[in-house]
């Protein structure tokens, strides 16, 4: 069965890299460009995993993560932070909101695939 992956990032470049990275796998990638749109997309699409940026307009990634954790239908979704900020304070804030992983930008597609496979399992398209 196709895995559903949601990328939430204000950069089109990052959303495109996530889409390309998972193209060889049995996945459906959807995208949102800020935290608020991201929470809506999560409620609508019920993704198996979310890649979340921190610095975004309208609603930051940490605010969106808090909202997801408070929303029963999506509260248990694994969320991986994909962000240029890797200081102890941000890591701690994300940890407190039960992140499933943390990938620092700059990043390579392989890192996303490895972590996704570990968390939810991935299969290659035939």
């Amino acid at each position: 069965m196709d895995r559903k992956i949601l990328t939430i990032d204000d950069s089109k470049m990052v959303r495109m890299i996530v889409e390309k990275t998972f193209a060889p796998y049995n996945c459906i990638v959807t995208a949102a460009s800020d935290g608020s749109e991201g929470v809506e997309a999560a409620l609508r699409d019920k993704p198996d995993i979310i890649f979340m940026d921190i610095t975004m307009p309208v609603m930051t990634g940490l605010e969106a993560l808090a909202k997801i954790r408070q929303t029963p239908e999506i509260a248990a979704t694994p969320v991986v932070m994909l962000t240029a900020e890797s200081d102890a304070q941000r890591l701690g804030a994300a940890d407190a909101l039960k992140v499933a992983g943390y990938i620092s930008k700059p990043f390579q597609g392989d890192q996303l695939v490895l972590l996704t496979h570990k968390l939810i399992g991935l299969t290659r398209k035939k």
């Binding site: 950069s11 470049m13 990052v14 610095t55 962000t83 240029a84 900020e85 890797s86 200081d87 102890a88 304070q89 941000r90 930008k105 700059p106």
Partner: peptide, 16 residues
Amino acid sequence: ELGNMVVGAVKSNVSD
């Protein structure tokens, strides 16, 4: 986004 990544590392060092 290149700028965000370049400056994000500097910001993280300052925050630490």
